[in-house]
Design a protein around this nucleic acid. Sequence first.
DNA 1: ATGGTTGGTAGCCAA
Length: 262
Amino acid sequence: MRIATWNINGAKARLDGALTWLKETNPDVACFQEIKSSNEAFPAAFFEELGYHVAVHGQKGFNGVAVLSKRRFDEVVVRGLPGDDGDAHARYIEVVVPNGSGIVRIGNLYLPNGNPIGTDRFAYKLAWMRRFEARVRELLDLEEAFLLMGDYNVIPESADAKHPDAWREDALFQPETRAAYRALINLGLTDAVRACQPEAGVFTFWDYQAGAWQKDHGIRIDHILLSPQAADRLLGAGIDKFTRGWEKPSDHVPVWVELQDG
DNA sequence: ATGGTTGGTAGCCAA
């Protein structure tokens, strides 16, 4: 089964592009981030027409995540990242979908950007990452196949940026940010794209500004992390770079994995 | 060093 993630940067602005991409690549599951839409305003009916079941954790104007699945799923495990009842940002939704005779759990995340550094926004990013690690530890105890995918807003290594020095003062490339991400990997998760495309210069984001796309000034910040049981089933991973060249593109491109059916 | 662009929403914020 193909499972994909895409920061679409606005469900309304990207509706045509998202539908075109779904028809062209036909993922079994698609996770969207930055839908910038309430649950009510999310255009679920258009996706349902393509055969998807839809679960949304929306927020008007900012943030917001959604999961589309061709296989019917009953279980939305959580809406909103656990661990802080005072956090109103819609940045996490977790579902369980069928995979053959088994199941696969999918956490769809939109990790805080955290800029500028030295502000409460950066502190919020790091606190969010600590809460996320706590959730990952709970999931690992279940010893099941799960994927944690989305816009991590983390550049893991220098090889994940065309010009790493341009990001030295950025929240996405701070030592604390990278250490918090590394801590997740060190729990035993597999970075699917790293495993399948270990070369430098594989990017998922190009800024709208300053001709970043034309100059290939990209970064890799959208990731799919696999539990050991999911990694056992990994057949391939890739990036749909072609969408960045479309009319009215998102500044992010989709990332996907192919998993063996269970 | 600055400004460059896009999206959502209503005179700016977030990225």
